[in-house]
Measured scan of single mutants.
Amino acid sequence: DAEELIELVERALKEGREIILLGVRITSEEAGKWFIEWIRRFL
């Protein structure tokens, strides 16, 4: 579910982890915020 995915992304970014989803590397909080917004819009 989308909320679970958002929580995972937020937690990983807070822990300083690198996330790779759909071939996109997300390493900064700014990118994470963009990704979370995208999830909310399309899922």
Rank of each mutant, 00 (worst) to 15 (best):
R40M: 12
G16C: 14
I39R: 00
L13C: 15
E7F: 09
E18K: 08
K14L: 09
E30F: 12
E10T: 14
I39A: 00
L21F: 08
I6D: 04
E29P: 14
L13H: 03
E4H: 14
E15P: 04
I39P: 00
T27C: 15
E3K: 10
G23R: 04
A12K: 02
W34N: 10
I39H: 00
G32P: 08
L43E: 02
F35H: 00
R40V: 10
E29I: 12
I20S: 01
G16E: 03
A2L: 15
E29F: 11
E4D: 10
E30K: 10
R11V: 04
L8R: 09
L22W: 13
G16R: 06
E10G: 02
F35Y: 05
A12P: 00
E7V: 11
E15F: 06
L13R: 02
S28K: 04
F35N: 00
I6S: 03
V9Q: 00
R25Q: 06
E29V: 12
R25T: 09
A2I: 15
I39K: 00
L5S: 00
R25K: 09
E30W: 14
E7T: 12
R40W: 12
E7W: 08
L5R: 00
L22H: 04
G23K: 08
L22I: 10
G32M: 14
E30M: 12
I26G: 01
E10Y: 07
E18I: 13
T27R: 08
I19R: 00
R17V: 13
R17L: 14
I36S: 02
D1R: 15
V9M: 08
R17P: 06
L22A: 06
L43Q: 03
W34R: 14
I36Q: 03
L13S: 02
L5H: 01
L21E: 05
D1S: 13
V9R: 01
E3L: 14
F35G: 00
L5A: 01
E18T: 12
I19K: 01
F35V: 09
E10K: 14
R41L: 12
E30N: 09
L21Y: 06
E10A: 08
R17M: 10
W34A: 14
L13A: 03
E7R: 15
R11Y: 01
S28D: 07
I36H: 05
G32R: 11
L22N: 02
G16W: 14
E30C: 15
A31P: 02
E18M: 09
L21V: 12
A12Q: 03
K14D: 04
D1K: 14
I19H: 01
E15V: 08
W38V: 03
D1Y: 15
L5I: 05
D1V: 15
V9F: 04
I36L: 07
W34T: 07
L8M: 10
E37T: 03
E10L: 14
E30D: 10
F35W: 07
R17W: 11
R17D: 01
W38G: 00
W34H: 11
E29Y: 11
A12H: 06
R40S: 05
R17N: 04
K14N: 09
V24T: 05
E18L: 12
T27M: 14
A2Y: 15
I20T: 08
E3W: 15
W34P: 00
K14H: 07
E18A: 09
W38K: 00
G32E: 06
E10P: 00
I19E: 00
E10R: 13
K33D: 08
F35K: 02
I20F: 03
T27F: 14
L8A: 06
I6Y: 05
I20P: 00
L22T: 03
S28M: 08
R41E: 10
R25A: 12
E29L: 13
V9A: 02
V9C: 11
V9H: 01
A2P: 08
R40K: 14
E29H: 10
I19D: 00
E4A: 12
I39V: 08
V24F: 08
I20Y: 02
K14M: 06
E4F: 15
I6K: 05
I19N: 01
E3Y: 13
R25E: 04
G32Y: 12
E4K: 15
R11W: 08
E3C: 15
A12G: 04
I19W: 08
E15H: 06
I19S: 00
R41K: 12
I39F: 05
S28E: 05
E37D: 09
I26A: 05
E30Q: 10
E18N: 11
F42T: 04
A2T: 09
D1I: 15
R40T: 11
R17E: 05
E3S: 11
L21P: 00
I6N: 03
R17H: 08
V24L: 05
K33M: 08
G32F: 15
G16L: 15
D1M: 14
I20D: 01
R25D: 09
E4V: 11
S28G: 12
R41P: 02
I19L: 10
R25S: 08
R41G: 09
R25G: 08
L21T: 00
F35T: 01
T27L: 14
E15T: 07
R11E: 04
G32Q: 06
K14F: 02
L8K: 09
V9Y: 00
L22V: 06
R25W: 12
R40E: 07
G32S: 05
R25M: 12
E30T: 06
I20K: 02
K33G: 05
A31E: 14
L13Y: 02
E29G: 10
E15C: 15
L13W: 04
A31Q: 11
I26E: 05
I26R: 05
I6F: 07
G23P: 07
E15Y: 10
R25L: 13
K14W: 05
E4P: 11
G16T: 07
L5C: 05
V24I: 13
I39E: 01
E3P: 08
L22D: 01
S28P: 08
V24H: 04
R11N: 06
L43G: 01
T27K: 08
I26D: 02
E15I: 09
G23F: 12
I6V: 07
I36E: 05
F42G: 02
L21A: 04
E18W: 09
